[in-house]
Design a protein around this nucleic acid. Structure first.
Lengths: 338, 338
DNA sequence: TTGTAGGCGTTATCAT
DNA sequence: ATGATAACGCCTACAA
């Protein structure tokens, strides 16, 4: 198939492999116009394509970075990936995408495989349960960036939403429009899932700041699939919430499923706000007020950090990059009467 | 950083590189239990990780396949990618994902880069405007599969929806529920975009089969962003449509934007059906009747085909795999009175 | 300005 | 059962 090698080109052009190599690397400086042309012709004629693998072996760099995500289907993932790809494209890098499915074992295997494949850097949406693996990378100063989640106890550049602020923003917005019976809707709370916990904390802090109580009655945690049922249960209680804060797009779906099935009117009976600016937010009725993550900026930053780390080769102190959420005011909340 | 090589392991274990290599490739057959253990220990102690690049150079296979898509953000893409990744994962392959942004030049560059990186196969969501590039691959018998779109004149395994049937399905369903004034809503029609044309043809055929006329009045083609405006224009005309067939998720958004802004009631004033089972289909009000593509099956098949081609190494005649759409009956169409 | 030679880390072929 | 040695295709001194 493709067996044309540099040697073939060299022979046809009547020069040595080195010269061809020079040519390929655009070091024309001391090359006669004459040979340059001959080489170009030979390449053309043979349809020569350099073998980057061979080059990589020598140069110890592959111009590819690995990205391990825990959920490829998640909208955030897709958008961040897109930005990463774009940033890599600019620099002539390629991206190997791996989906861990939030399984730490798979994640670990992927890290090892990618390292074996000599990727130049790694961007990970971590499961959060592989501290040892990450720590080794950090010790080796291997270019690594976390996105969306971070791993407590592992000092790595991390790109994430200012979750605390996002939750505060939700509560503030509700409160300033007269809502008090605010509940947070979230997947099960597990300690290693940092964003989840941060959102809860932000929620709690903002509530308490206003003297609103936070207890079981306004923390609704369940698997997305079980959410509608859980919400229905909550809504028969006397002091049912009149404002729901869904901490991500998946829980939002649970909430919307519920209001539809139960015939609860939005925003008259219950107001809704959520994190993640879902694509249907403004065609839904009522248009959904959301809190958007700057996904593109986050992806870009993540890529930029790996590249900087690749350059630096000295750990210039890992940093956490917090991105500010932005409120997208629409109509799933009744305005006024603060 | 990672300079531990096979030679180091060999030295520490007091064996030759060859033996270590055997060990790594699990050819224990003629290896003493003793040396086996020594090697294992050495590897452990040094934290040795094989260099797959070096292996690839020798074996001429990289266990990675390249995927070039024209729009990473598209839902179909994401889901198909997911399936491809999963299928590759099973076989120990990795996936390099590239986004052409529907730009033929970028697409071409990516093909070249991926070949230079020695990927073992290529799955492409083609822009449709690089026949020459593809034809070369075909001549070289390079494992290649097209997804979603195909390229007329290039004989390659292609995985796509039965677009004709999908469009027929839409018309049939409308018609059998008493609708006559059916319009198709599509992005601009360009000849190299095969699915688009096929959907239009299916629409036309199904309409004519019933003696419904097809003309300018029921082909609404515009850039998604311009669709709401275009639809508004159409809806002031006397014989306005009472059924809209959106050929993909993007045009659906345009349609929904329009009905919301114009206050057109669904399904009372206009019924809607579309291709692509968008995630919010059943939380929308009314729940959207859609025509789903088996995205997962399509991705899986695409991956399987590349692997088969890699095995076969003989062009066993390129095939087009048509996947059947499935109707997801919900409530954006009034039932009955056929 | 161009060529020679050695090496990158692994595998494969033969010996032993 | 294990080892020596030559590739794999490219890059890079250094030599000419």
């Amino acid at each position: 198939m493709k067996k044309v090698t540099m040697a073939d080109v060299a022979k046809l052009a009547n020069v040595s492999k080195s010269t061809v190599s020079q040519y390929l690397n655009k070091r024309y400086e001391y090359m006669s116009e004459e040979t340059r042309k001959r080489i170009a012709e030979a390449i053309e004629e043979l349809g020569y394509q350099p073998n980057i693998i061979a080059r990589s072996l020598k140069q110890k760099t592959t111009a590819t970075i690995g990205v391990i995500v825990f959920n490829m289907l998640h909208m955030l993932t897709t958008q961040v990936l897109h930005a990463i790809e774009e940033e890599c494209q600019k620099r002539g890098f390629q991206v190997i995408v791996c989906n861990s499915g939030d399984d730490p074992d798979k994640e670990k295997t992927y890290v090892e495989t990618l390292l074996a494949k000599q990727v130049d850097g790694l961007i990970v949406f971590p499961t959060g349960k592989n501290e040892d693996v990450y720590r080794r990378l950090v010790e080796e100063r291997f270019p690594l960036v976390f996105v969306d989640r971070m791993v407590p106890g592992v000092e790595v550049d991390s790109v994430l939403l200012d979750n605390f602020a996002a939750a505060e923003m939700a509560v503030d917005y509700f409160a300033s429009n007269g809502y008090r019976r605010i509940a947070i809707v979230t997947p099960p709370l597990v300690p290693y899932n940092v964003p989840r916990m941060e959102r809860l904390e932000g929620f709690r802090a903002a509530m308490e700041k206003r003297g609103f109580e936070v207890g079981d009655q306004n923390v609704i945690a369940a698997e997305p699939a079980a959410l509608p049922r859980e919400l229905k249960k909550r809504f028969v209680e006397p002091e049912r919430p009149n404002a729901l804060f869904a901490i991500n797009d998946l829980t939002l779906m649970g909430v919307l499923r519920f209001v539809k099935d139960a015939g609860v009117r939005v925003p008259d009976e219950v107001a809704i706000i959520n994190i993640d600016d879902v694509p249907f937010a403004d065609i839904y009725t009522p248009a959904l007020t959301t809190i958007a993550q700057p996904t593109f900026a986050m992806g870009k930053k993540a890529a930029e950090r790996v590249f900087e780390q690749m350059k630096a080769k000295k750990a210039d102190g890992p940093r956490v990059f917090r991105f500010s959420p932005t409120l997208m005011e629409r109509t799933s909340i009744r305005r006024g009467k603060a």
